[in-house]
Simulated scan of single mutants.
Amino acid sequence: MPRRRAGAVALAMIVAGAILGAPVHEASASSVEHAAAAGEAGGPAARAADLVASMTTAEQAASVIMGHIPSTDPAALNAYMAQGFGGFILMGANMPAATADLPTVTGSLAVDTSLPPLIAIDQEGGIVSRLSADTYPASTALKSQPADVTAAAFAARASLVAQAGISVNFGTVADVTADTSSFIFGRALGTDPQASAERVAAATAAQEQFLASTLKHFPGHGAAPGDSHHAIPSTSESFEQWRTSDAVPFAAGVDAGASVLMFGHLTYTAVDAAPASLSARWHEIARDDLGFEGVIVTDDLGMLLSSGIPEYRDPVADAVAALAAGNDLVLMIAGSTPDTAGQMAAGIVAAIENGSLPPERLADAATRVLTLRLSLSAASADWALCSTCEPAS
Rank of each mutant, 00 (worst) to 15 (best):
L131I: 06
E360Y: 03
I127F: 09
P225M: 12
A29P: 02
P2R: 14
D73V: 04
T56Y: 03
Q209W: 09
E40C: 10
S213Y: 11
L160Y: 10
L77D: 03
P44V: 00
A197S: 10
A18F: 06
P70A: 14
G126R: 10
V176P: 00
D300Y: 13
A98V: 07
Q207S: 15
A49W: 06
V176E: 02
H283M: 09
S393E: 15
T72R: 04
R199W: 08
L362G: 00
A366V: 00
L331N: 02
V111E: 02
M66Y: 08
P249H: 10
V254W: 13
A322C: 08
D339Y: 11
F239I: 13
V32A: 15
S28Y: 02
G21L: 02
V9H: 07
G17F: 09
F250I: 03
M81F: 07
S28H: 08
E311K: 00
A76D: 09
Q163E: 15
V349F: 09
A6V: 15
S28C: 12
M332P: 05
G264C: 06
V15E: 14
G226P: 10
S393C: 09
P275A: 08
G335C: 08
G84K: 04
T367I: 01
A334H: 15
A12V: 02
I184W: 10
